[in-house]
């Protein structure tokens, strides 16, 4: 196991009912690093991402086997409260999903439920700093009371990032965060991811190999439910070990 590993997964299997969706995955997520999961659709990359904060618990038919540790502790231990885990492992989804509340309340939601602030002033501060970190503050500072659903797609996604950042997670999971965005918004979000790296680990699932190459330091390639190759992004894209990785990167499978 890598010394710098924030989270590490060993022999992870996921079943949806009788469907064996993920087979024998071993991955270490390094601290303060952007890790990209790539692979064709249905390869299991999103499934694996959702194991890291136990979002699969909310799917009744899903069953997870194997070991996933965070800071050396098994997150599937029966004593672990998934609620507490998810406060440390935040998540941003494929489609922007702001709550039908004001911009302010969207960001304040996490701190409020976890009781992270003592008073309104602190909460205001958290909201402001989170929005700043998400590079959204300048655009919305005059209309914090406006509904979050009224923002543009790219702004909504940055609002969701701000919302996730507000609980000061240690790991941030992003499930194809740019797939519903236009190129300009995508560029803004990518820039953001790079900044966030200074504070915590980011795991990003993406369809686009260019995006993985641009934002990540490490890349994992999934194919048909198995982890094919995992390593430095540069290595994966220039000198992959596995012929399947090469085929995917050169566009022969996908």
């Amino acid at each position: 196991m890598d010394e710098r590993a924030k989270m590490s997964a060993r022999r992870v299997q996921v079943y949806y009912g009788t469907n064996h969706a993920l087979k024998n995955v071993d991955v270490d997520i390094l601290d303060k690093t952007v890790t990209a999961f790539i692979g064709p659709s249905g390869c299991g990359k999103s499934t694996f991402l959702r194991c890291l904060n136990r979002m699969n618990d909310t799917v009744a038919s899903a069953r997870v086997e194997g070991l996933i540790e965070m800071d050396g502790r098994n997150i599937y231990d029966s004593r672990v409260d998934p609620v507490q885990l998810r406060a440390k492992v935040g998540m941003v989804f494929q489609k922007p999903n702001p709550f039908p509340k004001s911009i302010y309340d969207n960001v304040a939601y996490g701190p409020k439920i976890h009781g992270l602030t003592r008073n309104k002033a602190e909460l205001d501060e958290v909201v402001e700093s989170s929005l700043r970190k998400a590079a959204l503050w300048n655009e919305v500072k005059d209309r914090l009371a406006a509904p979050g659903t009224g923002l543009s797609g790219g702004q909504q996604q940055r609002l969701c990032i701000a919302r996730a950042v507000a609980t000061s997670p240690e790991v941030l999971l992003m499930d194809e965060p740019c797939s519903a965005l236009d190129p300009i918004a995508t560029a803004q979000v990518e820039e953001l991811i790079d900044e966030l790296r200074s504070q915590f680990s980011v795991v990003i699932v993406t369809h686009s190999m260019q995006q993985a190459a641009r934002v990540s330091q490490r890349t994992a390639f999934f194919h048909l439910g198995s982890l094919v190759e995992y390593g430095e992004t540069g290595t994966i894209f220039t000198a992959p070990n596995d012929p399947r990785t090469e085929s995917y990167i050169t566009g022969r499978i996908g």
Binding site: R73, Q84, A87, K88, L116, T117, V126, E128, S168
Partner: peptide
């Protein structure tokens, strides 16, 4: 502004009072 809120470094295994 530097955020001054309480950090959460509590252990995953032991739920705190709020949880």
């Amino acid at each position: 502004t530097k955020a001054t809120f309480r950090s959460r470094k509590a252990s995953l295994l032991v739920p705190d009072a709020r949880t």
